[in-house]
Design a protein around this nucleic acid. Structure first.
Lengths: 153, 153
DNA sequence: TATTGTTATACTCTATAACTATA
DNA sequence: TATAGTTATAGAGTATAACAATA
């Protein structure tokens, strides 16, 4: 049985050489867990939810901008936006000065869906965090901004 | 512009209430980044790679066990295993005592593919970690086992 | 009968190529 | 001509339902 157990992750992390491996394993596993915790009750696909999330961070975006942000090709984004439009979660309008451009924005009901989805995702994690010691929570508080910076690098 | 910036993550993390949100955001972002860093050069799909990874942690598994581990239905796993078999990455043998069961195991070439993929994924993170201060690396060293425990809860 | 895995079939998501409409 | 987006079409990946082989 070659499975990497929690204690092995701690051991790995002790050296600079092992830190990268330990961090990758633990971050990927926790992310997978958080993702599954969400998927269980959401009726929107991961893809659709990602587009709503991106839109909520940018307010309005064009099809091209959305495609670039989600790293898909424009035809795929056309399809996704059409589907979200049918569900009443986004609005499509023509750009004021350039009529080739389609401007996409969230509807009120989308804001509610996003908030609810986020609330559910955090409920599970919140519960787990309350089971940690104050010192462990402090470590995570210190670590969060560093992890964030790594992701932006 | 509603985008959550690194400084906001640090601010969020200061309170117990905000820790869950800050941690979720930073972990999900770093995981996405790590995943993309891998996808860029791998010719195997994320799904195929996940199956190889699971097999490398368990040595031999049946189709049913693999389906359960990857949270897909048996017919989907049959398809995936057939494809990996065609690529020469896994072997299918019949179980000794129960001839309904298919036992799947990695080939030598799969071990090489897994090692190479893992090496690539870690190269990017390794480089980022060297840019941190020793104190920041220590914080991550402390955090890794806690993150791992959260994912197992 | 129950279980393990497969085949048949359909749906979703994605891609490339060819097209329309604006600029 | 070049650009933004769409339509047409095809290829993965997944699911459910029905089936075969074995227990």
């Amino acid at each position: 049985m070659l499975r990497v157990m929690p204690t092995q992750v701690a051991k790995l992390a002790r050296t600079d050489a092992g830190l990268s491996s330990a961090l990758r394993i633990s971050v990927m596993r926790l992310a997978r867990r958080l993702r599954n915790e969400r998927d269980a009750r959401d009726d929107l696909s991961a893809n659709h939810l990602a587009v709503l999330g991106t839109l909520s961070r940018h307010d309005t975006m064009t099809i091209g901008e959305l495609a670039a942000a989600e790293k898909v090709q424009p035809p795929s984004m056309t399809r996704t936006v059409t589907s979200l439009c049918d569900k009443g979660l986004v609005r499509r309008t023509t750009h004021d000065s350039d009529r080739r451009v389609v401007v996409v924005s969230l509807t009120e009901s989308a804001h509610a869906v996003i908030a609810e989805s986020r609330r559910r995702k955090e409920a599970w994690l919140n519960h787990r965090l309350r089971e940690l010691t104050p010192a462990e929570r402090q470590t995570l508080r210190d670590a969060a901004p560093i992890l964030e910076r790594l992701s932006q690098a």
